[in-house]
């Protein structure tokens, strides 16, 4: 299929593995889905310690389930990316380990305290959910299918995150103060989630032209701010003075020059120190179990896999 035809036909769920897609499309889609999949893995990496640190058994279960879901989302997304025929999952996971795979800015920062968890589990996941909902209509069908399941599950994550925030916000004075501190630390990063504003609001990039993206970052940022700033205020969180936020008729605008874009681009290049540490931490974990993957590969190639499947079906 030539690029003009792709742009012409670029409707929701229009293309799948059966279509002969041009290389530009396959590469752009792979880049986008790989980024998304990597983010699920690195988000899970960040949240995992809180399974252990949960202050009740029910919370522990919820945190374990949430982390499990994120890994499950990674599984779905890497499969959707693999279906473009550009890279295998193994390649993509190796790239992530080597520090070449890119992922969301927020997952480059360390998270060590319980009061920080709603910053990811409510605000960052909420921002991601806003974007993901629009991707149910992406033109790469396997990506849209992954999005169906991810969006189905994600409601639990956001509510769980909000519930933790609510518990802190309505609990002890100390809990409230710690929550406010965590909010002040994370708020600028959360505001950078959708990247810097596009110069031209009608600007269309390649991904939009071929239907991979359904909504621009500016529009998504706006929808996010409109829904989540009132939420933060509802829980008594004070929005920091900087970066300045201008409100007009219930819509919000961030004064972008107040944000640290140099840091943002350092993060984006995988060069921020804590981000590097997190990448390397995951890499070590991945390497430590390489022997198991090799065992599975050997088993598969020894031809015993089919026989065993058969036995399972008997």
């Amino acid at each position: 299929m030539d690029l003009d035809t792709v742009k012409e036909r670029a409707g929701p769920r229009e293309f799948g593995p059966g279509d002969d897609m041009p290389e530009e499309y396959r590469k752009a889609a792979t880049r986008m889905i790989q980024f998304h999949a990597n983010s699920e893995i690195m988000g899970a990496y960040l949240e995992k310690p809180f399974i252990r640190q949960s202050p009740s058994l029910d919370r522990k279960l919820a945190f374990s389930a949430k982390t499990q879901d994120e890994i499950g989302h990674g599984q779905l997304l890497y499969r959707a990316a693999e279906s473009l025929g550009v890279k295998t999952r193994e390649q993509m996971l190796d790239e992530l380990a080597a520090g070449e795979g890119k992922f969301l800015n927020c997952f480059h920062y360390p998270m060590t305290e319980w009061q920080e968890t709603p910053m990811i589990a409510f605000f960052v996941d909420g921002a991601a959910m806003r974007r993901q909902a629009t991707l149910k209509r992406t033109s790469w069908e396997p990506y849209a299918h992954a999005m169906d399941k991810i969006c189905f599950e994600e409601g639990f994550h956001i509510k769980h995150g909000e519930d933790i925030m609510r518990e802190l916000a309505t609990g002890s004075k100390r809990g409230q103060e710690l929550l406010q501190e965590a909010f002040e630390e994370w708020w600028p990063r959360i505001l950078q989630f959708f990247g810097p504003t596009d110069d031209d609001s009608t600007h269309h990039d390649f991904s939009a032209d071929v239907g991979l993206k359904r909504m621009g970052n500016d529009e998504l940022r706006q929808a996010f701010l409109n829904a989540y700033i009132p939420k933060a205020e509802k829980y008594g969180l004070e929005i920091p003075e900087k970066p300045r936020i201008v409100e007009e008729d219930g819509t919000y605008e961030v004064i972008e020059e107040d944000l640290d874009w140099e840091e943002f681009f350092t993060v984006a290049k995988n060069e921020y120190p804590s981000g590097r540490e997190q990448i390397n931490g995951r890499k070590e974990a991945q390497e430590a179990v390489a022997w198991v993957r090799k065992s599975l590969d050997d088993w598969e190639h020894a031809g015993t896999a089919g026989a065993s499947t058969q036995r399972a079906a008997d």
Binding site: A44, K48, L61, I71, Q75, V289, V292, L296
Partner: peptide, 29 residues
């Protein structure tokens, strides 16, 4: 078991062991 979450050999085996961990917590409960 939860120590294996995000650290299991493959994504699929991660999901399975996470589930077993949750089963055990549920039984403890």
């Amino acid at each position: 078991y939860t120590e294996w979450q995000v650290r299991a050999p493959t994504l699929e085996s991660d999901l399975a062991l996470s589930n077993i961990a949750q089963d055990e917590f549920g039984h403890a409960r």
